[in-house]
């Protein structure tokens, strides 16, 4: 039963991800006084791409063609770890939050390699920048996560979320710091404004788009889907760790339904925040990113220190 729910939850993750992307786009369009595409446009794009014949560069190697499958599966695996509508599922025991970060690293490793495979200048540029930003983001992210895991004294996400639920609404300074750190990292890791702009293909600024420039057809669909999934994963992580209320702790139709509604509501609100910030903030210069991520790390560190100094009863 619980395995079934775990599999269903993962599928739900995958199917809802394009919807979140559509909603985000819709909000942004509205905020920028543009006519918005349908909420379901990302689904149509994905279906269109899968029905197209992929065109691959003549001297691309096998790595280039299998990388999209690896990237997609690694992201799906990360999705199995994060509780979406219910906690206490068996899949979250098979891998904890550090493994989840590892899955992201796995996907990124192959994405960066695929960017280098064709031998165009853009691919290399994208890979180089992606690896730079992610290597700075990873310590900040782990610092924020360590704050949480030390409070709950577990790295198992499901157990940690239950812990936060059982504690009730307690205002912890460490959590506030960790929340902001994680938001900053999430923006950087999912390639949103101000770190990267997913909407343009401007040579000098693009990061993620530069790596996938050579992809088309189903390969592109998989990578796009994976990045939508990654956005949703970070959203769920933020929503469910810091505001876990509503998530199902027992498995019956009612609680699961509430869980689904709750997470959809939370994600919708988060997406509005993201859309507003993307409308207000301009993209940064590339060499300002380290200051941005340094700030995120500092927030994580402050969270950790305030946990150690203020919250541990000794």
């Amino acid at each position: 039963m619980s395995w079934l729910i775990a599999i269903l939850q993962t599928m739900l993750f995958a199917t809802l991800a394009p919807l979140l992307a559509g909603w985000l786009k819709w909000c942004k369009c509205r905020l920028q006084n543009r006519k918005a595409p349908s909420l379901f446009q990302p689904y149509r794009d994905l279906i269109k791409l899968t029905n197209k014949q992929p065109v691959v560069a003549g001297h691309a190697s096998w790595l280039f063609t299998i990388a999209p499958y690896i990237i997609f599966s690694a992201t799906v695996l990360a999705a199995t770890v994060v509780p979406l509508i219910a906690v206490d599922l068996p899949t979250s025991a098979s891998a904890d939050v550090i493994v989840m970060v590892g899955f992201f690293a796995f996907a990124r490793f192959f994405l960066a390699l695929a960017g280098l495979d064709i031998g165009t200048a853009f691919g290399g540029m994208g890979s180089s920048r992606e690896m730079t930003i992610s290597s700075l983001a990873e310590p900040a992210m782990l610092m924020a996560i360590f704050t949480l895991t030390m409070t709950a004294s577990t790295t198992n996400l499901s157990v940690a979320i239950s812990h936060v639920l059982n504690e009730g609404l307690v205002l912890r300074p460490s959590f506030v710091f960790a929340l902001f750190a994680l938001i900053l990292v999430a923006v950087a890791e999912t390639g949103r404004v101000p770190v990267d702009n997913p909407a343009t293909h401007l040579e000098l600024t693009m990061i993620h788009e530069a790596m996938i420039l050579e992809y088309s057809g189903r390969h592109l669909a998989l990578i796009e889907w994976a990045s939508q999934l990654k956005l949703m994963l970070y959203g769920v992580l933020i929503a469910n760790i810091f505001f876990p209320w509503g998530i199902a702790e027992t498995f019956n139709l009612k609680t699961l339904g509430y869980g689904l509604l709750a997470i959809m509501g939370k994600l919708a609100v988060l997406a509005i925040f993201l859309a507003v910030s993307e409308t207000l903030v301009a993209k940064m210069r590339l060499f300002r990113v380290q200051e941005y991520l340094g700030f995120a790390y500092l927030l994580g560190l402050l969270g950790m220190l305030s946990h150690i100094i203020l919250e541990t009863s000794r």
């Binding site: 560069a57 031998g119 189903r218």
Partner: peptide, 16 residues
Amino acid sequence: LRRNPATVMRRAEPWD
């Protein structure tokens, strides 16, 4: 993704 024979991968020169 590979079940449809109409979408067999095609190779071409990369965009320069």
